[in-house]
Simulated assay, not measured.
Amino acid sequence: MTFTDRDLSPSLAAVRERHAPDALVLDSARDFETLAPARAEDLGLLVDSLDPVSYPASWLPPDAPEVLVRYAGGEFTVGAPEALVEVGREVPEQFLGFFEARYADLAAAVGDRLDPVGTYQLAAALHTAHLGLDTRETFATWEDDHPDLFDAWVDAGDRLEPRLADLPADLATGTTDFGDAAELACGAIKHGIEPPTPFGALDSPAYREYGADFAVQWAEKTFENLD
C-alpha cells in the first residue's frame, strides 16, 4: 500500500480550510477497511504525532467480525477513513465509537435475523444516517459557493431514488437483505432524501439528539415487527 499527496480542486481545498485545516489528504493505491500495523506506522512519518484509539472488548458481542475485533483492539491499525466535513466535526470515525457499549445491545436486538456481518453492516449504515443528519445541512449550503461539490452531492442522491421506491417490497420478498436495505436508506438520509419504511424514523431530530440509544430502540421495535 502506497500513499501520495492528493491534489485538491479549489472547492475541496476551500472545504478543507473551512472544516479541517489540519487534515492531510492522501491518495492510496487501493481502498481499505483497516491498514496493517507496518503500513500504518509509515503514515507516522507524515504527521507530528499519532493518537491510537482502542475500545473495551466488552463493547463487542462474542461473534463480532474479525475486522471489528482488530479495529477495537490494541493492535495499531488505520481504518474507516472519513470525509473532510465529518473530520471537522470531531465525531467518531467509525460506528463503534458511536455505539460504544450499546453495540452489544444492537447485536442482541437483531441477532435472530442478522449474522455478525449483517449486524456490522447495519451499524455502519445507522452511523452514516446519524452523521448525515448533521452534514447534509452543510452540503445543502454549497450550491452557490461550491456548485461542483453541490451538484455531485445532489447527483449521488438522485441515483439512489429509483432503488428506494421498491425497497419495502424488496425487503418483504427477501430480494434485498436488511443490511443492504439499511445502507441504501441511510445513504438517502445523508443526501436529504426521505427514506422508505421502516427507516423513516431515523430521518428525525430525535435520532440526531439521542443517537445510539435511539438507534438501538429503533432496531428493537423494527425487528419485533418483522417477526
Rank of each mutant, 00 (worst) to 15 (best):
D42Y: 07
G44S: 08
L45P: 01
V47S: 05
S49M: 06
L50E: 09
L50K: 04
L50W: 06
P52H: 10
P52L: 13
Y55I: 04
P56G: 08
A57E: 15
P62G: 06
P62I: 00
P65V: 06
P65F: 04
E66Q: 12
E66I: 03
L68S: 07
L68Q: 11
L68G: 00
V69D: 09
Y71V: 03
Y71S: 12
G73W: 00
G73L: 01
G73S: 07
F76V: 08
A80W: 15
P81M: 04
P81H: 03
L84D: 04
V85G: 03
V85E: 15
V87W: 04
R89G: 14
E90L: 05
E90D: 11
E90K: 01
E90Q: 12
V91A: 04
V91K: 14
V91Q: 12
V91R: 10
P92N: 07
P92T: 06
Q94T: 00
G97Y: 10
F98L: 00
F98Y: 14
F99T: 01
A101K: 06
A101Y: 01
Y103A: 08
D105M: 04
D105H: 09
D105I: 01
A108R: 05
A108I: 00
V110C: 13
V110T: 13
G111T: 11
D112H: 09
L114N: 09
D115M: 06
D115C: 05
V117L: 15
Q121V: 09
A123M: 07
A123Y: 04
A124Q: 03
A124I: 07
A125G: 05
A125H: 02
L126S: 02
H127A: 03
T128M: 12
A129L: 05
A129R: 00
H130Y: 08
L131Q: 13
L131D: 01
L131K: 10
G132P: 11
D134I: 13
T135E: 11
R136M: 10
R136W: 09
R136K: 04
R136I: 10
T138F: 14
A140V: 10
A140M: 14
T141R: 13
